[in-house]
Design a protein around this nucleic acid. Sequence first.
RNA 1: CGGGUAACGACUUUU
Length: 245
Amino acid sequence: VLTYTILVNGSYKKGDLVMANGYFDEMLLNGVDPDRIAYTTKIVGHMKAGDRSDANNMHEEMLEKGFPPDVIIYNVVVDGLYKSGNWARANEVLEKMIQDGINPDHVTYTSIIHGHLENGHFRKAGEVFYEMRTRGISPSVVTYTVLIHSNARKGRLKLASIYFKEMQDEGIKPNVITYNAMINGLCQSRMLEQAYELFLEMEKKGIHPNKYTFTILINANSNRENWQEALRLYIDMLDREIEPD
RNA sequence: CGGGUAACGACUUUU
């Protein structure tokens, strides 16, 4: 089951629904019984591909096999609803989730916070962030990265920096994406020097810049017509064997 | 100890 699930999930990530179905069927043919995770993988894959009907069929089959919806299924649904602007529906599902005795976890909260931030509801996002902590649910790196990213992107750099520091005070280590979010915000606010400081800082910590990091910096320099620096970064990137897009 | 959910950039219009 494990092996097949990995194959199925890998196919979805490549966007190959046919291949995913192929592996899933092959698993059945070999007499392997899908478990909760195998079913969820398939449902999520189809939902993300916009294929709701097939996802629904699978969902019913899961119920028949005695796998009630778990936290992850709910998280996926809630996240999808927020991303499509279905606020009312998202809240209904959240209530149902709680009625079913499934508690929202840090992923659920991160999706909610992200939804608010992307809609400019900064205050609301802050409230939910506060609420999750009072419920004893610890924010993850992703939670902080989302907060940093949205705030930094809209020029609220001081708040982003506060989160950046706060997470580290709490022992949560920023990763490449967190750094990229900060660097991106700084570049957009024309604070290239500080962006470069973070760039150096991450390398010092052994966090390797990726193609996103380089694209952000190259783009910022291009906008300022610092062609030579942009080129230098590009070459630097190739030297590290990072593929340009 | 390895399988499912949330987070990052630019590009995206010559018919």
